[in-house]
């Protein structure tokens, strides 16, 4: 992949990994984006990669976390937390203490709040820069990392960032390698008790499975293959919506009917 000489020897990398949730079955697994983060870390030559997880420890989460160990690790650091605790203070403290050069994590978690805010809050707490949507780490030299950021429609942007830095990866990062059962079950959990801060707000929330939202069909009126390709590659554009407030039910229904007629759903 990358020329090995481009890497600073002894680059310390921490990957924040979470317990994932399979979209169909809801079973615990290694989270896809976090696993991509681990894969990215593995591809860095001469890097010392450490896995860090903050969360509750039980049978199913342990099995899921072992999925990361199976990517070729002998241990995973675990900050034990109670259920529903806010993991931010614990992670910030641990990262502050270990002070790695590079922190990699997925864009958002597959369970819990999954708001995708954690990396930003962490960066704010630690005072580090953050780069989102990373596709590759091209090189690290003299404390400066050259990063490739993924933009929509396959575009890439090259960035230079001074270390330490937090980077997040999404589906643009390379797919994670297979997790091997043997190393996964031999790997050890290095458990440390960090600070636990209860998240009262979260505790008062009511959580229920989301229903898939219907997708808007794209009507493409293209004359040439080029237009069709452009239309297919274009990002979905919203924006032509209309907000109705203070209307009677009849008026609302009229508006909906009009829209349905416009869209050719009703004829």
């Amino acid at each position: 992949m990358q020329p090995e000489s481009a890497m600073t020897p002894g680059l310390e990398v921490t990957v924040l990994v979470s317990v994932g949730r399979h979209p169909l079955t809801g079973r615990a697994r290694r989270a896809d984006q976090d696993a991509r983060g681990v894969e990215l870390a593995r591809s860095l030559a001469d890097a010392q990669v450490r896995l860090l997880h903050a969360g509750m420890r039980d049978e199913s989460s342990e099995a899921a976390l072992r999925g990361y160990l199976g990517m070729g690790f002998t241990e995973l650091s675990l900050l034990e937390q109670s259920e529903g605790a806010d993991v931010l203070p614990a992670l910030a403290e641990a990262l502050d203490a270990a002070s790695p050069h590079l922190v990699i994590t997925g864009e958002r978690a597959e369970r819990g709040e999954g708001s995708g805010l954690l990396p930003y809050l962490l960066a704010e707490r630690l005072g580090w820069p953050l780069v989102s949507g990373l596709a590759a780490v091209e090189s690290v030299e003299d404390g400066v990392a050259t990063l490739l950021q993924a933009l929509p429609r396959g575009q890439r942007r090259r960035l230079k960032v001074r270390l330490p830095v937090i980077v997040t990866v999404d589906d643009a990062a390379p797919a994670p390698r297979q997790s091997a059962y043997g190393p996964a079950r031999r790997g050890a959990f290095e458990a440390t008790a960090g600070p636990v801060s209860a998240d009262d707000e979260w505790a008062s929330w009511h959580v229920q499975p989301a229903r898939p939202r219907p997708k808007r069909l794209k009507i493409v009126k293209a004359a040439s293959a080029r237009d069709r390709f452009k239309a297919a590659a274009a990002k979905a554009e919203g924006g032509s919506g209309q907000v109705l407030t203070d209307v009677t039910p009849t008026q609302g229904a009229e508006a909906i009917l009009t829209l349905l007629r416009e869209e050719d759903v009703l004829r």
């Binding site: 399979h22 169909l24 079955t25 079973r27 697994r29 199976g70 990517m71 070729g72 390698r177 297979q178 997790s179 091997a180 059962y181 043997g182 190393p183």
Partner: peptide, 28 residues
Amino acid sequence: TLEEGATPGKGAEVIDNLIVTDNPGGFD
């Protein structure tokens, strides 16, 4: 497969599907 995690082709995907969905195609 178990020690190297080196099942080629779509093998790893099929195994992952079997683990989380109990069928090789990853169907519900």
